[in-house]
Structures are given as structure tokens and as C-alpha cells.
Amino acid sequence: MSRMLRRLGEGVSNRALVALGLVFAALLLAPLVSNGYVLSVLIIALYYAYAGQAWNVMMGFCGQLSLGHSLYVGVAAYAAAIFFVKWNVPPVIGMFAAIAVAMAFGAVIGFLAFRFSVSGVYFALLTIAFAEFTRIGFDHFTWAGGSGGFFLKVEDRAADLITLRGPPIMFYYVMLALTALAFLFCRMLTQSRVGYYWFAIREDQEAAQALGINVFRYKMLAVIVSSGMTSLAGVFFAFYYNNLFPEQIFSMARSIELILGPIIGGLGTLFGPILGAFVLTVLADLVTEVLVFTGYDIPGVKQVFYGLCLAVVVIWLPLGIWPPLKRRLGLEGRS
């Protein structure tokens, strides 16, 4: 245990540890100085930070581009919601079903793709196709509401972590805890054999294999870990929004939104997905607010803003915001 802790901090400068502590403290205290609106924006930012971190495991670490992560969010959201609404099983237990279902989908996609050497663009297309098929499936799955949606009862009550019923501030701290745990988990992965192997596969699959890495197995592991992590975002989604529509939850737009954070923050980095999600969510909301305030209520302005951010990053900061920022702040590791 202490060895694991030591390894978590290995190569991290004290300055970086302090900075990380400050960020975490700020996030812990943020609700105290936020109104309801600001809190809702922060919750969304944390949601994308977490989901982006999960997606980053597959693409940022292992180099497998998924454009269908809404699939894992969706099936997990439905699984947890169905367990709760139909069978009265609270999400603390239902989430295990959600994790299992999402991992099973991930395993099937991974198996088909990696067994038959589907990679690159074709792999991305396969992930989109699976999300689409599943959406169509849920559209016709009338037992779970079909295209008309599936709903949880909205209850105004004190925070209950067992059933995930409660005020927004409870969801804020749940999401913050998940984001922090995902961050630590990913740090642990990158400081282990698995992380080294994923990076090697991302950089050059043939060379990785020649060094004794079972590429198929480690790619499967990346998909399964990533889909399992993503599933918890889905559980959160179901209980926070209380309504699920196949049309929305499985949509490709959702998959894309989810991957913008890590791309803009810095693919394959640990802090990039968090930074990217906050920058995007907070700035996009600010832009929308300012426009509304000045009398321009333009639909779709957020998407345009996302597009602009993506263009700026791809052209001027191909590694994302975080790597250069980290250097600027003098937070680079010691060796």
C-alpha cells in the first residue's frame, strides 16, 4: 500500500503536488461560493472531466479511437435506472450491473475489432455503428420506454447516497469524488506495466508485440477498463437528469462532446481531460450567457464554440493545452 502510494507520487515535483492540492481544495470549497446556476455548470464540467478521463484510457493511453462512447454511458444509464425503477435496486448495487453491461459491450466491440485487425478509422466507425445500433434497439425496447423515454421519479429530498436521490450539491460531490478517484486510478495505471504497455501499443503496435506484449490482450483491457469507467458517468447521468431518451443519450454528438475535453486538454495526459472539460464547459457557458445578455440568443452557439476551440488547439497546440501550460507553470516532473 505505501509502496503504491510512493509510486503514485514518483517523479512528481513538490510544486505540482501543491498545485494539485490547491485545485482539489478549490473544487471542494467551490459549492460554498456558488449559486445554483454556477453549481450546475460545475457539475457538468466534472461530468465531462470524468468521462473524458475514461475515454482517454482507450485513446490517450492505448491509441484506440472510440467515437461511440455514448454507448457505454447509455447502456449503463439504462441498466442502473431499470434496476432502480423496475426492481427497486438502488444504484449503489445497480451500478455493478451497469459496469458489467458496459464492459460486456466494450469486450464485444474490442473482440470483433482486434481479432479481425480492424483499426484506425475503421475501428472508430465500428464504435459509432455499435452506438447507433444500440440506440435503435432502445428506441424499440418498449419495456424500457422505447423512444418515448425512461423516467425516474423526481424527488425533493435530503441527500441519500444509496439511492442517489438528493440535491445538486450531492451530485457535485459524487462527481468530484469520481473525478478524483479516476485521476488517481489513471495515475496508478500509467505508473505500472499496463500503462507502459498501452503507451507502447499506441506508439507502435508491431514494435510493442516484438517486445513481448500481447497486443490483443492489452487492447482488450484498455477497452474494458475504459467502458467500465465510462459506465459510472452513465449511472450519474440517469440519476441526475432523471430522464433517458435513446435519441439523446446514444447520440454521436454526445460521444463527440465527451472526447473534446481530453483532446483540448491534452491526449494521454492525466490532467488534460480535467482541464479541457472545465475550459470548454465553463467558457462555453460564459459565451452563451454573454450573448444572451447582449440580446443574441443564438441556438447552437455552444457547438460553434466547441468547434472553434478544437480548431485552435489542433492548429496551435497539437499536444493540447496542458503540456505547454505545465511547462509554463514549472510543474514538470523531476527524474
Binding site: Y197, F199, D204, I213
Partner: peptide, 24 residues
């Protein structure tokens, strides 16, 4: 040559050495 371009020189060789050693 097929270096792991994005990894450091030390990390490149560590990937290979993980074949022989259980511990990082």
C-alpha cells in the same frame, strides 16, 4: 527503426525490460 516516438529513451527500453522483470 520503430522507436516509441512519444516516450522517453528510458521508457522505450523499460517497455522491453518489462518482458524480463515483473516489477517496474
Amino acid at each position: 527503426v520503430k522507436p516509441f516516438a512519444g516516450l522517453t529513451v528510458h521508457e522505450n527500453v523499460t517497455v522491453g525490460a518489462l518482458n524480463a522483470f515483473a516489477d517496474l
